[in-house]
Design a protein around this nucleic acid. Sequence first.
DNA 1: TTGCAGGGGTCAA
DNA 2: TTGACCCCTGCA
Length: 295
Amino acid sequence: MRIKEIENGLILEDIKDFDAKHIFECGQCFRWTREEDGSYTGVAYGRVLNVKSDNDKGVVIIDNTNAEDFRNIWFDYFDLGRDYGLIKKELSKDPVLEMAIKHGEGIRILQQEPWELLISYIISANNSIPMISRSINLLSEAYGKSIEYKGKTYYTFPAIEEFHEVTLEGIYYCRAGFRCKYIHQAARLVASGEIDLDAIELLDIDSARKELMKVPGVGPKVADCIMLFSMKKHRAYPVDVWVKRVTEYFYLNRDVKMKDIQKFAADKFGELAGFAQEYLFYYAREFKINADKMI
DNA sequence: TTGCAGGGGTCAA
DNA sequence: TTGACCCCTGCA
């Protein structure tokens, strides 16, 4: 990969395994929106960024940033130190994964902010993606900081300092329904230090999951999402309805319990379970695998 | 136009 | 193990 500085941005050349659509639409993030030109604009780490990938040329254009932020933030955010070619080669030994990877070959697992993901995935429970995004945007508008970019106003996700004194009524503004009380309690737990996200990140996966599930509104699936998408715990295999469907459809051929699926993934994919999950999730959703089946 | 099912799960009985 | 759950959309 070569990095070229341009006005208010960077060009990454000779970059592999990077497709903006796959990355931003594989279900791991809620704050990136597709523009008319096929690029994606999003808010992360208190900044607004626009990303466009040209897969044929192996080029990625990142607008509204600089070399320093790239080194300090975006290199890790886009997981650019990892060779996804190796991961895909290993996973492709399985024919189902080989097929799934063909459709999502440019997926990378973003390294997002734990606090934001904790709240985002609490909101995600029994909810639809447009509604989740809307609630997160409403919270950000109300309590985050505004940033202007290309004539539009964006809002950062509120830091815990900006958020922990917000009342339950103030949280209901985001229209997340019964999840609002969980958001409120989660903010208090994090602000008080009872839940220490930095410390949890250092724990092994089972201890981390246990700690996260002390937060109201966080069950096994939400905990696994937080660990996989913001705490570098790549063994995590979040089992939502889509992953359940695709695992049953291709591998197990029957109705199974969540725990059976977790065990299956751990046995089959091991260290790479989280990556496998993303390829399978993207594939299942794109092709609506098993969607007509009652779960 | 109205009504109803169902959605990135979790909680409580 | 099972139903309820806020809010909203899609569809009959």
